[in-house]
Nucleic acid binder design. Structure first.
Length: 550
DNA sequence: CTAGGGTTAG
């Protein structure tokens, strides 16, 4: 079922929309140039590039350069990119000859920029490459340069189109990317996947699915994009469903797919499913020991499933560790209130070459120490914290995240419980679709009476809508974690192995549910664990491990 | 030459 093959089918299919008359006066963006103006790659330029590729001495390159100028190709980014790349390969200082070549081009395209930036990144000064990178990405630069590729027509349709989609997406012009996609004469899986990922990253899984549905040949990468898209957008059930449909379709799977599945399991708290995935990964030789990404994902999954020990076993067994592995483990310890272990690991990490993720990491540790009441250590950490000079690279990812969040609608409250058989039961707030709903409702009413006798009062302040108190009580009673609890009580016995009822929730637990769970643990004599999006709550004998602080 | 991957903070 699993393969490591990276071969992809690049069969391009014609765009059916183009045979129909094009609608006039659509929302044209100022940067966009229609594909009809596109020319084919010119043979002369291709030949010059391949000649450059074979150059081994500076004199040869200079000869070809002279030839390029004679042929009037002094503005051809395609040739000059190759020229700069060859120059830097021969250790010619970027700041001399290559930089001059670059400055003679009026409209450098992203490839030319990249050649220069890469040169500085290899030879130094490193700061210069950062400066150039930011300049290239500064307002509108990407799309404007994209025009020059189009007008010059330095590459074939399909490739330019795909690259443009990528560029527009990276510059945050999703609509432009879509427009390119719609007007491309020929398209392949890559074109589709680029856009699907862009929609997924912006939180619009609806559009992603719509596109995916219309994709004629769905390959492994496209499927994986959907699976991880769902996982990244807090829709783990959909992610697993997608994964299963992918297998039904007979599409092969590799470690990237499995990583997406594991992170869905982490969200769901689906231990059994996760274990199975781990087994599959191991049997194909990219288990947690061999593959850092699989390992880190599993660490996160196990700690979010409440099994820190297993998480630590994975961590210990890993051949290679990076920031993700350490972060996941530290956070895993923190989530379970093991401040000491987290602190120790943090210091262990500082001894390696792995650098913490700048301020965030420190913020996390300070928060943890503060929570554990170790204020002196927290202060010491703040004082010894090295201040990193360039936060610009950080900005990029923060910006993308912002975009993603902006497009994201607020997720409805949702809880999951795993049955004895490993089946995941999902409950939404006010959800009446569960087959056992009638029983659940009765059990909840029953429980409510017993809790009231012990002094529990519904906390009406947890509902902020402007409605009557009775309606508020009804809403509270139908919170997803209460439904899940009732399901758990109905379907497990206190004598069952691991008789704890473990509930996973996508949002923060509300005050009313918290009090309800406390009281319920006392009345039923059962241990209840609720993991919300922040931490674990262990309810036992009427008290919670978080000390009512969450 | 082009497409899919793991953590956290607020």
């Amino acid at each position: 079922m699993v393969t490591l093959s990276r071969k992809f089918s690049t069969t391009a299919v014609p765009n059916p929309k183009l045979s129909q008359p094009q609608p006039q006066n659509t929302t044209t963006t100022q940067f966009f140039i229609p594909f009809s103006q596109l020319q084919q790659r010119k043979p002369l330029e291709s030949r010059l590039v391949s000649i450059l590729d074979g150059c081994t001495h500076l004199t040869q390159i200079k000869q070809v350069h002279a030839h390029i100028l004679r042929k009037g190709l002094d503005q051809c980014c395609y040739c000059l990119t190759k020229l700069i790349r060859m120059l830097t390969k021969l250790d010619v200082p970027v700041h001399s000859y290559p930089r001059i070549v670059f400055h003679q081009v009026k409209y450098p395209n992203p490839f030319l920029w990249t050649a220069l930036i890469r040169g500085y990144a290899v030879q130094g000064p490193f700061l210069e490459s950062v400066v150039l990178y930011n300049r290239m990405r500064s307002e509108g630069t990407g799309p404007i340069h994209a025009q020059t590729i189009l007008i010059g027509g330095f590459a074939s349709d399909l490739f330019v189109g795909n690259t443009m989609i990528d560029m527009y997406v990276k510059c945050g012009f999703l609509e432009c990317a879509r427009k390119v996609f719609d007007e491309m004469p020929m398209r392949n899986v890559v074109s589709w996947t680029e856009l699907i990922v862009a929609y997924a990253k912006s939180g619009d899984m609806g559009s992603a699915w719509e596109l995916f549905r219309g994709l004629p040949v769905k390959d492994m990468v496209a499927w994986t994009a959907m699976v991880t898209g769902y996982a990244q957008n807090g829709k783990p059930r959909e992610a697993l469903e997608c994964f299963e449909r992918m297998q039904d379709a007979g599409v092969k799977t590799d470690e990237v797919t499995l990583v997406g599945v594991i992170s869905a399991c982490a969200l769901l708290g689906a231990t059994k499913y996760g274990n199975w995935v781990r087994g599959v990964a191991e049997s194909y030789g990219f288990g947690p020991t061999e593959n850092v990404v699989v390992g880190s994902a599993l660490i996160d999954m196990y700690s979010k499933c409440g099994i820190v020990e297993d998480a630590y076993n994975i961590f210990e067994g890993m051949k290679e560790r990076n920031v993700y592995s350490y972060s996941s483990m530290i956070v895993g310890f923190a989530m379970h209130g093991r401040a000491h272990a987290a602190m120790q690991l943090f210091h262990e990490m500082l001894k390696t070459e792995i650098r913490p993720n700048k301020r965030n990491h420190y913020a996390c540790m300070v928060d943890l120490l503060g929570r554990a009441g170790r204020l002196e250590e927290a202060l010491e950490l703040i004082e010894t914290m090295p201040i990193e000079p360039h936060g610009r690279w950080d900005d990029v990812s923060r910006l993308r995240k912002l975009v993603r969040e902006k497009g994201l609608k607020k997720n409805p409250g949702c809880s999951w419980v795993e049955s004895k058989e490993g089946v995941i039961h999902e409950f939404y707030a006010g959800d009446m679709t569960h087959p056992q709903y009638a029983e659940i409702k009765r059990a909840l009413a029953d429980l409510l009476d017993r809790l009231k006798a012990k002094g529990y009062q519904p906390n009406l302040g947890s509902v902020t809508y402007d409605i009557s108190d009775d309606e508020k009580k009804l809403i509270l009673m139908n919170h997803s974690e209460k439904l899940a609890l009732a399901y758990g009580l109905l379907n497990t016995e206190s004598t069952d192995a691991g008789c704890t009822i473990q509930i996973m929730k996508n949002l923060r637990i509300c005050e009313d549910c918290h009090a309800f769970m406390c009281s319920a643990s006392q009345v039923t004599g059962r241990e209840i664990v609720v993991r919300d999006n922040m931490r674990f709550h262990h309810f036992r004998d009427g008290a919670c491990s978080c000390d009512n602080f969450w």
